[in-house]
Design a protein around this nucleic acid. Sequence first.
RNA 1: GCCGAAGUGGCGGAAUAGGCAGACGCGACAGUCUCAAAAACUGUUGGGCCGCAAGGCCCGUGCCGGUUCGAUCCCGGCCUUCGGCACCA
Length: 937
Amino acid sequence: MTTEGKTKAEARIDRYDPAAIEKKWQERWEADALYVARDDDPRPKWYALTMFPYTSGDLHIGHWFAMAPSDTQARYRRMRGHNVMFPIGFDAFGLPAENAAIKQNIHPSKWTFDNVDRMRGQLRSMGASFDWSREVNTATPDYYRWTQWWFLQFLKSNLAYRALAPAWWCPGCQTVLANEQVVGDGECERCGSPVSKKDLEQWFFRITRYADELLDCEGIEWPEQIRLMQRNWIGRSEGLDVGFDLDVPGVEAKEIRVFTTRPDTIYGVTFMVLAPEHPLVEKITTPEQRAAVDEYVRETRRQSEIERLSTEKEKSGVFTGAYVTNRFNGERVPVWIADYVLLTYGTGAVMGVPAHDERDFAFALKYGLPVIPVLARADGVSKSFSPAGTMKDGFTGALTEAGISFEEANGHVMVTLEERQAGVYEQIAREHLAPGSWTEIVGNRWRFIFEDGALELDSMEADRRILDRCKALQPSVAKARTVMEMLNGVPFYRDVLFHTDYTAMIHSRELSGTPGGRAIPETIAFAEKRGWGRPTVTYRLRDWLISRQRYWGAPIPVVYCDRDGIVPVPESELPVLLPDDAEFRPTGESPLTYHQGFLNTLCPTCGGPARRETDTMDTFICSSWYQMRYVDPKNPERPFSREKAEKWLPVDQYTGGAEHAVMHLLYARFFTKAARDIGLLDHGEPFLRLFSQGQILGPDGQRMSKSRGNVIAPDEQVQKYGADTVRAYLMFLGPWDEGGPFDLSGISGIHRWLNRVWDLVQEPVATASLPHAPATRELRHQTHRTIRKVTDDIERFRFNTMLAALMEYTNYLARARDAGPVDAAAWTEAIEKLLLMLAPTAPHLAEEFWARTGRPYSIHTQTWPSWDPALVAEETVTLVVQVNGKVRDRLTVPASISEAEAREAATASEKVRPYVEGKIVGKVIYVPGRLVSIVVS
RNA sequence: GCCGAAGUGGCGGAAUAGGCAGACGCGACAGUCUCAAAAACUGUUGGGCCGCAAGGCCCGUGCCGGUUCGAUCCCGGCCUUCGGCACCA
């Protein structure tokens, strides 16, 4: 053994030296333009795309984690006979460049392009099959000229418009802040001042025009959870848009419109809530309420939306002093403002129906607003609680006689009623009421039973009447502001006071009795017939605010002229260049607003003096169409030629981080649909297949970022182990869609494995001609089953199990070699298939061996291996025998075993017998080729 | 908080049309080689118990409950972690 080991070591041609072979092959591939996708290649096209990196500085391990598997897939597609285009570029505009500019006193352009130079080198070291001839960079005038061109097309198509929108404003720095720059409890990250939202005129893209189409993911193969996230993001709801009469002297508006998905509850409206920023708030607020309202609006402007919408936070609001009238029942209800209502959703106003909405219920209890139930309970249950002394003697006896069950504790009587018992109960209760007391039935019915009759809680007026009478009778409820507040003090009632079920309407005038299934459509029809409202679809999705008060972005190509207003810059004058000499004030205010040469221009229409728009575009716009530019990256006339777009688009396989599941992917889909409607494309979806990989985190389990100081760079590992090892290790870590904390400790395992492959391929092997030996059949079986497994896994992006299968295969080959002479032909096949299967993952190593074993350059232009099903088939299977679900034996049986034989073999098992003997055998379950399960008792 | 995911040995993970839990790798331990170390190679490695041994038994996939002959997988309820929440990209 010892001497043999030495012989092997000596026989080794040389050691695995990744640094040497990787550089050599990268240069060769580059020189041969091996990965340049040709437009005239007759093979079927395959457009593989990995999300282009943001130019943040150094490439970190997360970039490799995203790109290496994408490259493996692209290489696999190439070997499957496709003309693969796998382009790369840089997402180069954005906030960090400006932060660097201020902090390090370096121009954003220099910072960005220096980063690009470094990243390009790091990307090349990966040995990915990128087509560098198509590189794009969104911050170059060649590119952003077309980003501006898109803006002009959107403007022409009425997909771009201007409106007021809030932005974070730091009063200390006198500047707009990004969400990211607001830290702690709403403070400016730079100066610490408390910040608040300020309204600015800004540009929007009308993405909501495509809301319904974006909901439809027909024809694209995307993961279900991504589609679901997009669906929830768009948030389509059907409902009623309905007016409430407003009559405030001096206010022009005569109604306030609300959107509701629950029109069936409209008779239960007891208040209305406006978003604090609703334009009517200012107008309808009464002088007495002015101060409180103003203060509340100010406070709301300091909050983020996440804070505002938190359902955990206690609801708050302020009364405006104004009232509106519900057209359905004439009820006059107060108008409040509350931060949980957003101006951007629906009409920015909601009707408060506390009896059938949890949030409204809490709001009503807090502020003493009445609660009027207008829907029956699904279970028909009502409750009645009669405190000790409320009822005369004989009450419980009468209940028993009537067959009504009850509980009694300390003299209190608690009754839970089915619907059919309610009438009888009311009769009994009334007859037994002690002088000066009352009782009530609540839940499905809402009856307040007094000595002289019963009152129904069916209106705000009834709420007051009932409450007044109760207070007169019982001083302990004097503090209650509403009937519901009084009832809420009885723990026995807690579970029947409100519900959100879709049930029959009550207390709803002519609509009372409408069953749950028809309540919503009938209420809508009722409103529509009278001209009070109309059926409406509302989306959570909002139009895309694209204005950024920043320097490092594509300038929005419009000018403002005193005579002609908003004038688009003519296409022939694009690009509107960013001035190189902009001054970066430490305040961070957009330098464009100070740059006279940029700011002052002439109106394209009248030639008179005009001002340029100084806002730039959201960088998500740059990344919404880059996949189109790759097909024709150098076109000086158009963003891309029609011919090339039709040749290459849409992207066949897109891969990228799960953090982009909603926004980027939704914006890109919107762009493609708009491009189609403008007449630039024939298709409406940019990415046919999507795979969303997980995010690689720092060793501490947090997102890698420079500020956290947990960034792991791949360079050192690449130097130590080579790119092939780093690539394979990242793919071996776990399922690609999961991500997780990054830990380097296992990388040596991959390196050891590649070293074993190195030895396996190069060391001499004792061969013979043994075509019929069982070992030869086994060798070929292993080869072919591995091909099938690796092919399946690579198709499904299961790279971790693909690598495990390859490791098992190499372990097997080493054992087969050591076991004695192997069949020459089968061994040659094994090594050849092994190299082909390794090529997409370890491209340099595979290429090196392909050459060393005298095979023709390049392995990356070879055909992916196929498997022979006859060789894959197993000859024997393990049959599991269970007794009462516990494994008692495992039998090796021929794969062709019949059911009868399997049952026979199972019952005959020595190990099974003790568990079956003396017991009654019930059913015996047989799963073909897998198990026999015997049930005994 | 809301939306989407994930919780399995010391660690990364494998196994889901409901059917052998822990593939593959790391680490650890033991050994070979070496003056020694590194590297490399070989073996063992979920926990507990019985047995000299061959071997056998019980428990075990975040927590609680359910369905089933059988649950990591399906259902109900929790807990924790991660991603997104519209100006980070």
